[in-house]
Simulated scan of single mutants.
Amino acid sequence: MNPINRFANLDRRVLLSSVALLSLLTPLLRSTSASAQTGPDPLPSWNEGASKTSILNFVARVTTQGGPDFVSVDQRIATFDNDGTLWIEQPMYVQLAFILDRVKALAPMHPEWKTKQPFAAVLNNDFKALAASGEKGLVELVAVTHAGMTTAEFEKITTDWLATARDHRFKRPYTELVYQPMLELLAYLRANEFKTFIASGGGIEFMRPWTERIYGVPPEQVIGSSIKTRFEMKDGAPTLFRLPDINFIDDKSGKPIGINEHIGRRPIAAFGNSDGDLEMLQWATLGASGARFGLIVHHTDAEREYAYDRQSHFGKLDVALDAAAVNRWTVVDMKKDWKRIFPFE
């Protein structure tokens, strides 16, 4: 045989052997890359365990080019609840604390509130009477504290309040009572070309002035409840005037509707902490093809934060907790899974 042909045959045998070996190793290499991390830990405030692993594995699956679960960048949408998922919601929602403080600030201009419910309940710190006023009473409070002004005026009011208000237990601004592990998760997803959205039952214009600074989520990626607004020319300038009428409630079944209207794409990952997030998690993970991910933050740490779930008046986690087991959503045990809760720890 011609020496050149003998070399060619030998080269081909070596090549084919290498290809065969590579084909045997490929599944092992893929499984290793899904669990092993190179470089700095992207989630340093998360303890090693099933919750952290589930996040890392999901991101590896949907970002591995050529892999069976690869998701194109334009489809990498993740939605996050805010209250109880990204920041504190006990002993009451932060926006409710804003409402109560705002009523007290406006009270000198409304002497009739001393004897008129639900305002008298707020002024007397009578939370039993306030609760008895129900949804009707809350709507009244929202009307006087959130409406009757331009959107720019409301933004200034909320921004000023957040700059000075302090949580009674931690004695810190509410914008410091955000969860460090979730901040890392947001950053990790964005580093892997996810677009992160907030889908909250809180007021959309209450959140938008500060979410980019605190979470890295710009205002156009915030979905929330809203009241109606009206366009007006005021002193020759165009304004949007806030009206005392509810426009949209972005909670429970409203969340998938809000997500669809604002984003126009179905998320492949959703993160919540309460029954109010159930439908959002279902919308993101059920009845759709491809890799999907749902996560629930379970508040289990009474020492560092709060422990609550099925019986809580704020952030009740009951039906969604049961659904998590059925649908194989990740349930984060704050006490076990998080090394620290807040950035300042």
Rank of each mutant, 00 (worst) to 15 (best):
G134C: 06
A120Q: 10
G216K: 02
V59F: 01
A132F: 03
A163P: 06
D167F: 01
A324Q: 05
K234H: 12
F293G: 07
E193Q: 15
K156D: 14
D251A: 13
L21W: 03
A34E: 15
E184A: 03
Y306E: 13
P27I: 05
K255F: 07
A8I: 10
L189M: 08
V331A: 12
R102K: 13
K252A: 15
Q117E: 15
L189I: 00
M149H: 04
S51M: 05
M233L: 14
T150S: 15
L43N: 04
I227S: 12
R61V: 01
L86Y: 02
P111I: 01
R328F: 04
K335R: 14
F119S: 08
K228A: 13
L185F: 02
F293Q: 07
A36D: 08
S72H: 08
R265W: 00
D251H: 13
F119P: 08
W46S: 00
E279R: 04
I198F: 04
Q95A: 06
A269W: 00
P108D: 10
T38K: 09
E184H: 01
V59C: 04
G49H: 03
K252T: 10
F98E: 09
I88M: 13
F342L: 12
V59H: 02
R76L: 04
H313N: 14
G290A: 07
N273S: 07
F231C: 04
T64W: 01
Q90M: 14
